[in-house]
Amino acid sequence: MRTSEQQGVLLYAFTCGHITLPMSFFLDGEPGKARVPACVFLIDHPKGLVLFDTGFSDRFVGMEKGLGKIVDMPDGANISDRLKAIDVDPGQIDYIINSHLHIDHAGGNHMLPNATIIVQTPEWDFGLSGEDSAYDKVDFDLGQPVKRIDGEHDLFGDGTIVIFSTAGHTPGHQSVRVRTATGEAVLAADCCNMRRSLDEMHLPDHCYNVDQYRGSLETLSRLRRAGAQVFYGHDPEFWSQVPQAQELDLNTLPPA
């Protein structure tokens, strides 16, 4: 972790479970199934520790029925254990930026008791509505402080961690631009499941709002053309090339 000599923003990646779903869930019309990671990021800023998403809950460990048939959550893969493995106390996490509140993105929130959750207002309201079974309030409605935002939000006011709306997958999906010493990262989550999603403007077979989803992909495309490194939300091939649990150097990652 950070030493007294290190300045700026440090970025780390973790896998916190996998899920197996039809490939069309990620790319409309594609056959077969895909086993994809639940991707989590730690952003170490001089003013605080921030997580972007928290993966699956540890309640899935050992589960063989229901969602346990498609969710693979090994013991020790939860975000709390991932943080402890790099000497980070989960109780010291200041903020959780949930891209959205689906079970593979907010499942570890309960392990971070002192964190403030940052979520777009439409996402919070929709998650509480009970209209979509991909949300489970046991993951996110925990009494933690919740900061509801609408649109773009510069977390520390210095341009290094900027949250922006990427609606379409859900009503209030959001992504994050992170400026590090080695470049700008865009943590896309489910507004861009695969590299092919962006290369081909290829949408999934389900969207809360198709027009918004396409617009979010267009936003990511502009950022990628400007030189940002996009982290695709569920791309197993791309993710296999992302170093885990160590400071990321964007210059060493696969071409965006």
Rank of each mutant, 00 (worst) to 15 (best):
R59M: 13
L220E: 05
E184V: 14
H173P: 05
D104H: 12
R177P: 10
T116L: 00
D94L: 03
A13Y: 12
I96A: 02
P236N: 05
T121D: 05
E5M: 15
I103N: 08
K47L: 12
E123M: 09
I19P: 00
F164E: 09
M73G: 05
G48S: 04
T219F: 00
C191Y: 12
G172S: 05
E5T: 15
G157Y: 07
H206S: 08
P113F: 07
T170P: 00
F126I: 14
F140V: 13
D132E: 09
P113K: 15
G168F: 02
G143V: 11
V40P: 06
V146C: 02
F156I: 06
E218N: 13
R177A: 15
R2A: 08
E237P: 00
E247L: 13
Q212G: 08
N78D: 14
L217M: 10
V61A: 00
G8R: 13
K65Q: 10
G55K: 05
R148I: 06
I70S: 06
Q6M: 15
S57Q: 05
D72K: 13
D94K: 11
G215W: 05
F14V: 03
A185Y: 01
F140I: 13
D89P: 04
D136L: 07
F56E: 08
L42N: 01
Q144G: 03
A115R: 06
R222Q: 15
L112T: 02
M63H: 06
T219K: 07
D132P: 03
H169F: 08
I103A: 11
D141K: 10
Y135A: 01
A256L: 10
V50M: 06
Q212R: 14
A256D: 13
I96H: 03
R195I: 12
D104T: 15
W124C: 00
H100E: 15
D235Q: 08
R196S: 11
T54E: 03
L10A: 14
G48C: 03
P31Y: 09
M23T: 15
S80T: 15
D72T: 15
T15M: 07
F26A: 04
Y208D: 15
F164G: 05
A85M: 09
L49Q: 12
S216A: 14
L51S: 08
G183N: 08
V242W: 01
S129I: 13
A188S: 12
I79T: 03
L42Y: 01
K137L: 07
G168Y: 02
I97C: 02
G127L: 03
Y135N: 02
A185M: 04
H102I: 09
H105L: 11
T20N: 06
G108L: 04
G159V: 10
G172A: 06
L253H: 07
I117W: 02
V119K: 02
L223S: 01
D190F: 00
L21P: 04
S99L: 06
H153T: 15
D53V: 09
A13M: 11
D44T: 08
R222S: 11
A38L: 05
D249E: 07
S165E: 11
C39H: 12
L27S: 13
I163V: 14
M73C: 13
V242L: 02
E131K: 12
